[in-house]
Design a protein around this nucleic acid. Structure first.
Lengths: 336, 336
DNA sequence: GTACTATTAGTAACCGTTTTCACAATACCA
DNA sequence: TGGTATTGTGAAAACGGTTACTAATAGTAC
């Protein structure tokens, strides 16, 4: 095993001091042109590569950021991750991905590793409120960006301008629907609780009463959507529109309606949220609310690198993403 | 800004030397019980956390592995990543994820970063043959695991025992099908080329002639599958079975058949590959070949950590994954 | 020629650990 | 009792960079 070539070897070869080599590499101070040439030659000759760990150790900088997501198999997060990675790479940074599997415990573990490996910043998304996690993050004194809604003024944030539920429900209402069902996800998750609350609030705002029979909560999967569709199909007085907590649910539901020969959107309108790729491939094409994973990623990464590179040092900012409805074929205007 | 608490602070507080503290933490040498208690108290009191970078610097170890994938939005890879991360965490390691976006250039970049950050190992998956990448990897002298088929004896590998295509095609043949179509993906990708070759080979092995009319290659999406389905529906003499290069294609195809009132599997049988979650949620439930992302992940991570921890130092091993067919409702036995 | 300033380069301290080596204290044995 | 293992501990030298401080040289003004 060949010995690693260090900055000392380069200095020797080039007949200069290690300081000069370091200065040449980091361009912190100008070195004479002739000397620079010698150093460059020595580096090339020896195939020298600065040891990142040693650099990181000395500078207490790792050139790494950590990204914490609930579930990387969710197309929203994987797409967001990809845009973050791109921006990070452009800044000469690598990304440590931590998948928490939607578990609170794992979030704690994630933040613990974060502070122990000393990454330079973190992008944190969670389906929990997480007072403890935020407190832990605060202690790290590192640049931090939160994804989603948190009660916190201490960190950079990127979140939605209006909730998806509001947008979806109002679109149905605007199209004349009054008997509207809500199909949520895992009943106890904060995300579901919040969405349902939002849904009810939106109905009331438009003087429509919320009907408990038009509510089905199970989990965020296609199978759950199928069951919801079966349930709604069986009602003697069916709703005219359904608001699904995500596209998977909506797609599963449409399958059930199809199986029961209930025409979409003629007999029932369906609206989803997320705009995953499947939503434009199914039949009829699903009307949904775009979740704009790429915008989330771009803003989060930019906020973070503004802090890391000290391009911005003012008050913490909040980027609000303006989600738009994607009108396709699954909602009918029943006013016509 | 409070100063970071170091091993010296702990040593001071506990009235021992830094060496003792280090020994207590790493359990490399036994320390007296009483001393250990003192050290533990001091650590707790000060909230001391060893500095990973310094540790890494001293040990030339980063406690990080890198995982390179073509596309993290592909459910296969995200699921694989999750299992790898779990095993890594158990080994006290973090994972750097590098998404190459199915680009050769990005693969080069990925490996360059890998060697510059000096991670302790790498799990590499690619849709290319990549002679250059393998050569670069070889130079790093680090533990390496390859995912998929590569012509290489130098690294650990985990790949399939039989190709998915072989399994799928043979299942159709076993069920009496002779007029079988192949719907592939992006025509120029190595993966598609290989799969098609495999498909033709399997037919010939069973004395069935390959019919170019029964071949449709576009890309690996649901939309492409839909178009393929439309094309096949339009043929005057339709195949009795179709072998799709992945589940997305199969699902898209089934939609097209459904739209054309072609009953599955009564009039046409469809088989997919991947066993993504959608495949068991659609109607009829799709018969497919399980891609076992979790097994890939588990084996890859275990092979890697055997090397990293020097639990195994022998010849490079190849783990072959025995993929199984998942029989559901989309293939009919036409011999009955 | 002297004094002063700019520019470039070298010396050595430092970052926070691990670990080798040496040594003291204790245990063991004849 | 003396001699030898055994055990637990501390001092100090790494690991490979960066950088504050210092020194040398060149350039400029008087």
């Amino acid at each position: 095993m060949k010995k690693k070539v260090t900055i000392y070897d380069v200095a020797n070869k080039a007949n200069v001091s290690v300081a000069t080599v370091s200065r040449y590499i980091n361009k912190t101070v100008k070195v004479d042109e002739k000397t620079a040439k010698d150093v460059k030659n020595a580096i090339d000759l020896l195939g020298y590569q600065p040891n990142r760990i040693a650099q990181g150790f000395k500078n207490s900088k790792t050139f790494q950021i950590m990204i914490i997501v609930p579930n990387i198999s969710n197309p929203f997060y994987s797409s967001m991750y990809k845009t973050i990675q791109n921006i990070a790479n452009k800044n000469n940074y690598s990304c440590i991905l931590y998948n928490t599997n939607e578990s609170k415990e794992e979030e704690i573990n994630a933040i613990n590793t974060f502070s122990s490996i000393g990454a330079d910043g973190i992008i944190f998304s969670s389906i929990f409120n997480g007072y403890k996690t935020l407190e832990m993050l605060s202690k790290t004194k590192k640049p931090i960006v939160l994804i989603g809604t948190f009660n916190n003024e201490e960190f950079e944030k990127v979140c939605a301008k209006k909730t998806k539920t509001l947008i979806a429900a109002e679109y149905l209402i605007k199209n004349g629907h009054k008997k509207i069902a809500y199909v949520g996800g895992e009943i106890n998750s904060k995300v579901n609780v919040k969405r349902k609350k939002r849904f009810i609030y939106t109905l009331e705002k438009h003087n429509i009463e919320f009907n408990e029979n038009y509510c089905f909560e199970m989990d965020f999967t296609m199978e759950a959507g199928y069951k919801a569709g079966m349930y709604l199909s069986s009602l003697s007085e069916r709703p005219t529109g359904v608001c699904a907590a995500n596209d998977l649910i909506a797609i599963g539901m449409m399958m059930a309606f199809d199986e029961n020969n209930i025409k979409i959107p003629e007999e029932i309108s369906v609206i989803g949220m997320d705009n995953i790729s499947f939503s434009s491939a199914c039949k009829p094409k699903l009307t949904t609310v775009d979740n704009k994973s790429k915008e989330y990623g771009t803003h989060a990464a930019n906020l973070l690198f503004d802090r890391i590179n000290r391009t911005y040092t003012g008050e913490c900012r909040v980027k609000e993403i303006d989600r738009k409805i994607i009108i396709r074929d699954s909602v009918k205007n029943i006013l016509d």
